[in-house]
Amino acid sequence: MNSKTRDAILSHQTSIIDYWLEEVSKFRSEDNLQSITNKVYENTNREFVDKLFLTVQNGKDDIYKDLILYAERLIQLGWPLNYITRGLQAFRKVTVETLSKAEENYSKSIEFFQEIENWIDEIVNILVNEYSGSWENTVFLQKMALKELSAPLIPVFEKISVMPLIGTIDTERAKLIMENLLEGVIEHRAEVVLIDITGVPVVDTMVAHHIIQASEAVRLVGAKCILVGIRPEIAQTIVNLGIDLGRFPTKSTLKKGIETALQLTKREIIEISEQGGITYENSNP
């Protein structure tokens, strides 16, 4: 910003600030900032406009650091990006309006408008960058978190493991699930694996395809797969879509699946009588 523009803005500092605060307070009711007290809102507004004036006074370079720190704090507190963009739009409007009413001829020149435009644009760029940077970071962290809770294989008995699937299954997740599943089968020496889809909201042809592939891979490494947690609506979609799950056993609940798994590994759960003795029912030791 050239010195003429700077002097013009600074000489009307008080009226610009007052007008701006008034403008910004109009957004108060529309913003999703209802939970913030009036006092905090006013303080934040005042700080915002002070920072903006600091950039006018000192020009470029290290003074933007202050503005960035301010933006970072807003991001952390969860203020929306449109608070900042609207604030800046209001600032442009207020400044141009105030100064065009002023006496000096310079403030009516094209050059003057362009100076203000460039300055505001630069600040918008910096702050939007800050915001989107923090979003990218959040998305990345969420992806990592999702990856971590993406399907652990839990050994429940010797030779029997369970993999509960939760959430939507896309191709990338399916690949990860498959790798976890097979590594886990080897690690736990599982002979039977129960894949529990109780927590999978939608089973379409693609999800079914991934599950079928996983169970075929499990068979290749030398274990058996049982699909459990098939809710009525899932059973309906599977049949309506014409998906053939006939090749591997399915059970409605994890409990029934575990009973089948015990049978497959030639074991059963028996009750112990109160005296501490064991009642054998059709046992074959």
């Binding site: 498959m178 790798e179 097979l182 590594e183 089968v185 080897i186 592939q213 075929e216 891979a217 499990v218 290749l220 490494v221």
Partner: peptide
């Protein structure tokens, strides 16, 4: 596992 996945 890697071999099984590749075959599938």
């Amino acid at each position: 596992p890697a071999v099984a996945i590749t075959l599938i």
